[in-house]
């Protein structure tokens, strides 16, 4: 007998599998091959294509003023980002909810794990495979639409257009990470599906409600607001300094954590689309000195990165420790 049998008995070694990049690649490739043949992939590509073309068509027909100002791509980014903000989580959650739970339910996870892949390899491979499906369908949709968009819009700004695409991919990656991770913590696709729906509700209803609640609590004095002075120009031309209250920085930060806000804030960093129209934006007068770094728009990249890394990290830790 080898020595490791002696050390292994008696104490329970906490199971932790290793990561092998070749294995991750093999799992991701298989997963992508599998998904690319589903109606989902082509459906998504067509969906993104139609979305872009439809919004562009609307802008070019009804938005003559926008067109004259030469900011048509900005308008496109504005509209499309609002729609993708809502749609990408749905797509990522639908693509990812069965990633692990589904394979556990049908037992096919045993095919993957009978081969020399670790559980971590399987999770990462799944995340990469599913993200690739979403990303490639975005790229195909955007690339095909680019020709139509450029033709329909008077001016076409490739930087704005590519920024939107890149951010949509990163945003999709964050939600795919959430979906694959949730899928790995349960054996039942029903529970996984319910959890996905919960996440969607969380950021579309609960998150907005939280800000309202904070506002109410501040008005009642439970949360101490931050005072600032607003300069108001009266009807007679005189300016008045009016003291006002706003939510403290930490409450504002909670609002920026929403991946949807982070997605739009990050777009404003990359593209020329105005930051006042997208995501969260706060008037300068709110801050007596500099805006704290965590409320600046570039910080949204960090937030999105954390949304990608943290869920999958928790899943990697947990999935090693369960009975399949």
């Amino acid at each position: 007998m080898s020595t490791d049998t002696a050390t292994g008995s008696g104490k329970t070694t906490s199971p932790s599998s290793s990561i092998n990049l070749e294995s991750v690649r093999a799992v991701a490739k298989k997963d992508f091959q599998d998904a690319v043949r589903s109606w989902m992939f082509w459906g998504l590509s067509i969906f993104f294509f139609v979305l872009l073309v439809a919004v562009t068509g609307t802008i070019s027909y009804f938005g003559e003023e926008i067109a004259q100002q030469g900011v048509t791509t900005e308008a496109l980014v504005l509209f499309v980002s609002q729609i993708t903000r809502l749609v990408i989580p749905l797509i990522a959650l639908i693509l990812g909810w069965k990633a692990i739970a589904g394979e556990r339910e049908t037992g096919s996870i045993k095919i993957l794990l009978s081969l020399p892949h670790s559980r971590k390899d399987v999770l990462l491979g799944k995340l990469i495979g599913r993200s690739a499906v979403l990303s490639v369908s975005l790229i195909v949709g955007f690339a095909l639409a680019a020709i139509v968009v450029a033709a329909l819009l008077g001016s076409f700004d490739p930087v704005d257009y590519v920024s939107l695409l890149v951010m949509a991919i990163i945003y999709g990656l964050a939600y795919t990470s959430i979906a694959v991770s949730l899928s790995s913590v349960t054996r039942s696709t029903t529970i996984a599906g319910a959890a996905m729906f919960g996440v969607f509700i969380l950021f579309y209803i609960v998150w907005n409600a939280i800000q309202t609640v904070f506002q109410i609590l501040m008005n009642r004095g439970t949360i101490e607001g931050v005072s600032y002075t607003q300069e108001v120009t009266g009807p007679d031309g005189t300016t008045q300094q009016i003291p006002m209250d706003r939510l403290p920085d930490w409450a504002l930060f909670i609002d920026t954590i929403d991946p949807g806000n982070a997605f739009q804030n990050a777009i404003t960093v990359l593209s020329s689309t105005g930051s006042s129209e997208l995501g969260t934006s706060y008037p300068e007068v709110w801050f007596s000195s500099d805006v704290p770094f965590y409320l600046q728009n570039w910080f949204s990249f960090i937030i999105l990165l954390l949304w990608i890394v943290v869920p999958i990290a928790i899943a990697l830790y947990r999935f090693d420790r369960v009975d399949l």
Binding site: G8, T106, G107, S108, I111, S114, S118
Partner: peptide, 23 residues
């Protein structure tokens, strides 16, 4: 050891699992 060296074991083992659906 089946837990500590599972990957190595499975690289040298062929498995036909029970009641499993193919892709």
């Amino acid at each position: 050891d089946a837990q500590a060296h599972s990957r190595e074991i499975r690289s040298r083992t062929g498995v036909l699992p029970e009641g499993v659906e193919t892709y």
